[in-house]
Each structure stands twice: as structure tokens, then as C-alpha cells.
């Protein structure tokens, strides 16, 4: 069989690097190694030619014309919608059909459902972490903390679709964050921050921390939300 090339005596590493030699993407040291090997190896010289032909054929196989405009319009609509939502500054978003801006993939819908359900668990976890038992007869939401947050939520956050409930809890714990509402149509949660973490400088630090985390797609202060000064 032709694939059973006898590469005895062949510098196998140089042979393995051959495709990137052909595409011109080796560093100088690797290139020199392959160059040297090619000078002595007729098998790899022939393979180099074959790989060069394959590359040319693959690069020339570009007959399909794509139309980016419709997809781009969908995406810009999605971005517009997100901006409108953030500019509104509130957590109440007018109900919309679930697929206004673009056709959400099933996995995304599933992820949002899982996140929504998981928030209940998250709320319970936060309650356990910070809370004490409420007075008899006093109603309390699962998301309530022992140190109730006053005023409006300060942050709006969109988590990456694969973010788990445990991840969200981990992200919110350092700033004693509470999910006040969400997910919105765009998948955003309104987050209230407790205690010193709500002071402007500390809040900025928390925003930077969240932005640096790959599990957070977007975080922005909610316009007009009062920060808590003591």
C-alpha cells in the first residue's frame, strides 16, 4: 500500500513538521531542520510536493459565496437590544418573543433554563451563607441576605452560557452579591452588592474582577443605581 512509506532513516520530527514547512509557518530553527532533512530525503521531498499541491487545492476550493449581511443584521439587532436594555437602567424588560434578535440555539435556551432554575439553589446557598432565620411570620425571598441590600441593584451581568450555578455563586461571593432579577431576554441578571463592596471604588474593583473572568460575558454598572455609602 502506498501509505506504507518506508521512513526508516527518516527524521520523523522533520517529516511531522512538513505541512507547516509547506505553509511557511515554521520558526527558523524548525525550518532549518526540515531544510536539512529534505536535502537528504527523497521521500520527504516528494511528500513536500504532494502537500504543496494539497494546500493549493484546499485554498482554491473557495467556490461557495457566503452572504454575511443577513447574519450581521441579526447580530447587530441583538446588540441594539442589549444596549436598549442597559440604557433603560431598570430590571423590567418588556416581554418579547424569545427569538426576536436571532434564533437562539437550543443549547442556549437550555443553558438559560438551567441558570434560572439554578438561581433558586444559588439564593438558598447565599441565604445559608449569610443569613439567619427570619422572624416568624416574616416573608423572605430566597435571595434575601442577613444584611438586606437597600436601593436598586448596582450591576447588570451576563454570564457565559456554560457557567454553572456553583460558578455564579463563586463569582458573587467575594462581593456578597445577590441576584435581584433576571435572566432578561438578553440573558442579563441584575445584581445587588452588599456592604462595603457597594462603595464606588470597591464596586469598580469588583467590576474589573468580573470582567477579567472568562465566565462573565458582560458586566456594567446600572445607570443611576445608587452606590451605598456609609
Amino acid at each position: 500500500m502506498r501509505m506504507d512509506i518506508d521512513r526508516s532513516g527518516c527524521d520523523s520530527e522533520a517529516a511531522r513538521l512538513l505541512p507547516w514547512f509547506v505553509s511557511g509557518r515554521l520558526d527558523p530553527v524548525e525550518r532549518a531542520r526540515v531544510d536539512e532533512h529534505l536535502a537528504a530525503c527523497p521521500i520527504c521531498r516528494a511528500d513536500r510536493e504532494a502537500q504543496a499541491q494539497l494546500r493549493e487545492l484546499m485554498r482554491s476550493d473557495d467556490r461557495i459565496e457566503y452572504s454575511p449581511q443577513p447574519a450581521l443584521e441579526k447580530l447587530m439587532s441583538r446588540i441594539d437590544e442589549m444596549d436598549r436594555e442597559f440604557d433603560s437602567g431598570g430590571s423590567t424588560i418588556a416581554p418579547r418573543p424569545p427569538r426576536v434578535a436571532m434564533h437562539a440555539p437550543r443549547w442556549l435556551v437550555a443553558a438559560l433554563v438551567i441558570q434560572t432554575v439554578g438561581l433558586g439553589v444559588l439564593g438558598a446557598a447565599l441565604w445559608q451563607h449569610f443569613g439567619s432565620e427570619p422572624a416568624p411570620g416574616q416573608y423572605r425571598t430566597l435571595a434575601a441576605t442577613a444584611e438586606p441590600v437597600t436601593g436598586a441593584p448596582q450591576l447588570r451581568v451576563v454570564f457565559a452560557p456554560a457557567t454553572t450555578v456553583a460558578d455564579i455563586a463563586e463569582l458573587l461571593r467575594p462581593m456578597r452579591g445577590t441576584v435581584v432579577s433576571g435572566p432578561s431576554e438578553a440573558g442579563a441578571y441584575a445584581i445587588a452588592v452588599a456592604g462595603d463592596h457597594a462603595r464606588p471604588r470597591e464596586l469598580d474593583a469588583q467590576i474589573e474582577r468580573l470582567r477579567a473572568d472568562r465566565r462573565v460575558l458582560f458586566v456594567e454598572p446600572i445607570a443611576g443605581a445608587p452606590s451605598q455609602e456609609r
Partner: peptide, 22 residues
């Protein structure tokens, strides 16, 4: 992965690009 891809292409396309000399 590239090594196996090239080998399989040689099997699929014995007389085509990607095939090496015997």
C-alpha cells in the same frame, strides 16, 4: 493529528495530492 490525516488521505487518494511516493 496532522500525521494521521496525511496518512488517511494517502489511503483515500492514492494518486492524488497528499500521496507520497512509494
Amino acid at each position: 493529528r496532522m500525521f494521521h490525516a496525511r496518512r488517511k488521505l494517502r489511503q483515500l487518494l492514492p494518486a492524488q495530492p497528499g500521496h507520497s511516493v512509494e
